[in-house]
Nucleic acid binder design. Structure first.
Length: 645
RNA sequence: GUGCCUGUAGCUCAGUUGGAUAGAGCGUUGGACUCCGGAUCCAAAGGUCGGAGGUUCGAAUCCUCUCAGGCACGCCA
């Protein structure tokens, strides 16, 4: 459809260019507000009115005959103050949509794209905020792959001491547990640490003197001394596995897990630091409050500078991030070593190590474009990182460093009550509250998924009692996953999601299960088709373009069919728009709209009961084609389509 | 204080980069053929797009001012 439209645009431009001073830029083709007014509206008469000193309407009238004879256009008419509206050749468009249904004619723009997402600190369970990150990142990856891009997904693991030291402290001092005790702990380990982490935070607030003990643990961890080091290693690795399991419930997976500990041990920073000094991107502050630090001057604003290396010689977070970003682009001249960490669907997930393993390991990074999926609160730091690249004269890479930012997931007062959280007076006055790991305040990803699954299981049981319990459980998992993924995608990224259980647990209206239900209903039609007529869905053949639309189809049905097919054909365009704006809610809304139209269509026009054979075949072809587009859209959003539900 | 983001129906949100009569979902009210599944469909009610100026053929969208809310600005990560 996108190819069809660009061919159309090219031809129109060629015709107009002969007569008017129009560039391809002036030639926007927008949908009309009402299908009665045609399919596409050209607005160039307005743009030309000034230079030609003619009324837009006159220009439109003159241009109409030029445009009306373009292949694919059946009619052109002037409307309003100077719009030139086009009616498209329905059969030709339908034929194109059938040909490309579920596929794409798009081509890649990049040699290789790296997407970094999820990035949960390995000290506690994943919560709803992390889910938003992972759903956005995974959907972006799917969209880019659909477009034909080569995509590598990285999940960065900050496994250094600072992240896990609180939990180590908790196990050692508050719980008096040794490594063997941890290994024997059953149940969800990350959930256990969630509670422990909150307890430690509360304890440290009450007992400031314990800070020195925590510092001591930290030191021993950094020196690799047991039992502290062994404990921290056990905790972080086990929690990473728990996070992976949580994300797997949503169909989210990764190619590689680069670890901060490896970045340090392989001295990525030293290499980056040498580069920064060599190219004078950082300088040693000799006076002022940053005396003794290596700082980077920030371009924008007044003379602000950011500390990159502290006066004690250690590197800050931003410094490490610059090194990591350089590596992603293959600019560091160094690589990690890798070893297998897990297997899923026959694919190996690799984790970075500091020592070479058996020969023939993979290699990662070296991208031409990098997306970092990180919430908007880190905008400032991401800007500094990009500026670091620019200061190193890697302007091209700086331009291709994209911060995919999004707003946080916060908790509604109702959710707080449901979680049993006692809000302070100050907190009570607010319309939402931020998730806080320190306070143990938040909705754990697994808990939410569990609740969704339980609810879905009830519903499935009501409707599909004849299915086996295993089957029902599988369907419930798919519904839970679809509900959650759609929920995370439907909001624009700059909108704070004020999390509310009732909304998140809804299966009606604009929800994932609604989309899934649409595809299930279609399955049902095709299942019955097979039973009654022995005809398989895949065997529905499209006639030649001239015979696609049966003669005598009512005007109303023609209009409804056309609306549906135009929407279905717009998927590619919608994906491009979503990726360009990093606004994946476009894709979500589009899929929802498609379902609304599809549901309305087959409700109004019975398929199997239709007696006119030509009309019946036509309707079958329509819903089969649209279903393929719908499945494609669901796949892009990672929403599983159950066979029944 | 500086920077970024947000303000649209009772509630939660869209609004195709400036297009024609501002749209969904939830909630409310009223309806749906022994029909392919009611997690569905149809209909009604509900709006000075925070406010005031400006830019032009045309503004929810762009510019200025202003009000309200959120976030960020560390030798934490």
């Amino acid at each position: 459809m996108i190819a069809f439209k660009s061919r159309l645009k090219e031809t129109i431009h060629e015709r107009l260019r002969a007569v008017y001073p129009v560039g391809p830029e002036d030639l926007d083709m927008a949908p009309t507000p009402d299908p009665k007014m045609g399919d596409l509206a050209l607005t160039f008469p307005f743009q030309l009115a000034k230079t030609l000193k003619k009324a837009p309407r006159t220009i439109a009238q003159e241009a109409a005959p030029l445009v009306a004879s373009v292949p694919g256009v059946v009619r052109a008419e002037v409307a309003g103050g100077g719009f030139l509206n086009l009616w498209l050749d329905k059969a030709a468009v339908f034929a194109e949509v059938i040909r490309l249904a579920g596929r794409t004619s798009l081509a890649p723009d990049e040699a290789k794209i790296v997407i970094e997402h999820t990035n949960i600190n390995p000290n506690k369970a994943a919560h709803i905020g992390h889910l938003r990150n992972a759903c956005l990142g995974d959907t972006l990856a799917r969209c880019l792959r659909f477009k034909g891009e080569r995509v590598e997904v990285q999940n960065y693991i900050d496994d250094t001491g600072v992240q896990v030291v609180d939990v180590v402290f908790g196990f050692m001092d508050l719980e008096r547990k040794a490594l063997e005790d941890l290994e024997r702990l059953e149940g969800r380990f990350d959930h256990y640490c969630w509670d422990l982490y909150a307890r430690v935070s509360a304890y440290l607030a009450e007992h400031p003197e314990a800070q020195s003990r925590k510092a001591e643990i930290m030191k021993r961890m950094e020196r690799g001394l047991d039992p502290e080091y062994a404990l921290s290693r056990h905790i972080s690795r086990r929690i990473v596995r728990a996070h992976l399991a949580t994300m797997a419930r949503l169909g989210i997976s990764y190619d590689v897990l680069p670890c901060e500990s490896t970045i340090l041990r392989l001295e990525f920073w030293d290499k980056a630091f040498a580069l920064l000094k060599e190219r004078r991107a950082v300088s040693l502050a000799t006076e002022g409050e940053n005396k003794g630090c290596w700082v980077m001057r920030l371009e924008e604003g007044e003379e602000r500078e950011k500390v990159i290396v502290r006066s004690d010689g250690t590197v800050t977070y931003v410094g490490k991030d610059i090194a990591y970003q350089l590596w992603k682009f293959g600019l560091l001249g160094r690589d990690f070593f890798y070893e297998p960490f897990a297997e899923s669907d026959g694919r190996t997930l690799w984790i970075s190590t500091d020592a070479p393993g058996p020969a023939g390991g993979p290699s990662f990074g070296g991208a031409s474009k990098v997306y970092n999926v990180i919430d908007t609160r880190q905008s400032y730091l991401q800007k500094v990182v990009v500026q670091g690249l620019r200061s190193l004269q890697y302007g091209a890479q700086a331009d291709k460093s994209v911060h995919f930012s999004y707003e946080m997931v916060a908790l509604s007062p109702r959710s707080l009550a449901e979680l049993g959280y006692a809000a302070s007076d100050e907190e009570k006055g607010r319309s939402f509250l931020e998730v806080s790991g320190r306070k143990g305040l938040g909705v754990k990803a697994d808990d939410l998924l569990d609740r969704l699954e339980a609810k879905a299981r009830d519903e499935v049981e009501k409707r599909n009692a004849s299915l086996s319990p295993d089957e029902r459980a599988r369907i419930a998992r798919e519904i839970a996953s679809g509900a959650l993924r759609y929920f995370m995608l439907k909001y624009a990224r700059n909108s704070v999601i004020v999390f509310d259980f009732e909304e998140a647990l809804s299966f009606e209206g604009e929800t994932g299960p609604y989309l899934q239900y649409t595809s299930v209903r279609l399955n049902s039609i095709f299942r019955k088709l097979k039973e009654r007529a022995g005809l398989d869905e895949a065997d529905i053949r499209a006639p030649a373009a001239a015979d696609l639309i049966p003669p005598g189809l009512s005007d109303r049905e023609t209009a409804d069919f056309w609306d549906l097919v135009l929407t279905a054909g717009g998927l590619e365009e919608e994906v491009l728009r979503s990726v360009a704006a990093l606004e994946l809610s476009h894709l979500a809304k589009h899929a929802f709209l498609l379902c609304q139209k599809l549901n309305g269509y087959y409700h109004q026009y019975p398929v199997l009961a239709e007696e006119n054979k030509a009309v019946k075949a036509f309707r079958l072809l329509v819903i089969r084609t649209v279903k393929e587009q719908l499945l494609c859209a669901l796949g892009l959003m990672g929403i599983p389509p159950p066979e029944r539900m």
